[in-house]
């Protein structure tokens, strides 16, 4: 039950896009049609599912203050947390590369669908952001970290598919010319963000 609550919390209440604005760049760039939005959203869920637990293990067994105690008592007070940015981004970049190669080998059709989006994901703020939030939240085991990763990814997926659906329809509306495209996408995201604020009241 704890885990279900954590999933709902990370997907809706602390939605990556509407509460923290993480991953806005690709959110705005790739949300012109629903089809591509679904592809990118699925890729983000997939990458978060892998990177957050890996970074959690890295944080717990290597980077945190005292995390190296398993190597011997002389390492017990080593604090490598200042290295976390560079380690996290290195893990993310290499896992994205790895995932790309694996998907290409084992499922060419999925690769065809996700292919162009996978390299983009390495520099998506939502991925690094989820790892950094994971570090702040100090989860007690790797299961919680995984659920948090999948939940955030699902929230991001939901956001990009919703905005893509609206943008497909709004192409045919009369909008003031300077506001067309990006400007309108901002306003729409703001309105959806207001709606998502309604989830804040839930006690979980």
């Amino acid at each position: 039950m704890e885990l279900v609550n954590l999933f709902i919390k990370s997907a809706f209440i602390e939605n990556m896009i509407f509460t923290f604005f993480l991953g806005m760049c690709s959110y705005l760039a790739v949300s012109k049609t629903v089809k591509t939005a679904v592809g990118l959203g699925a890729a983000v869920i997939f990458v978060l599912l892998v990177t957050v637990p890996v970074n959690y293990l890295l944080e717990t067994y290597v980077l945190k203050e005292g995390a190296l105690a398993w190597l011997g008592s002389e390492y017990a007070d080593v604090d490598l947390s200042f290295l976390s940015f560079i380690m996290f981004i290195a893990v993310i970049a290499s896992i994205v590369q790895l995932v790309e190669m694996l998907v290409e080998k084992f499922s060419p059709s999925l690769y065809g669908a996700l292919g162009i989006f996978l390299p983009l994901i390495a520099v998506n703020c939502a991925i690094l952001g989820a790892s950094l939030f994971m570090q702040q939240k100090q989860f007690s085991n790797v299961g919680e970290a995984t659920v948090y990763g999948v939940g955030s990814g699902f929230g991001w997926f939901l956001a990009i598919v919703l905005i893509a659906a609206i943008r497909e329809k709004i192409k045919y509306s009369h909008i003031p010319a300077p506001l067309k495209g990006v400007g309108m996408a901002f306003i729409l995201t703001g309105l959806m963000g207001l709606a998502f604020l309604g989830f804040l009241g839930f006690e979980l």
């Binding site: 509407f18 923290f20 506001l179 309108m184 901002f186 703001g190």
Partner: peptide, 24 residues
């Protein structure tokens, strides 16, 4: 609240693009 920054940036873009129509 978070959503208001989106509205402000949208209005910023609106003003900027209306003043420089070549950007549309």
């Amino acid at each position: 609240l978070p959503p208001s920054s989106l509205f402000i940036v949208a209005i910023y873009i609106w003003v900027q693009k209306s003043r420089n129509p070549e950007l549309i």
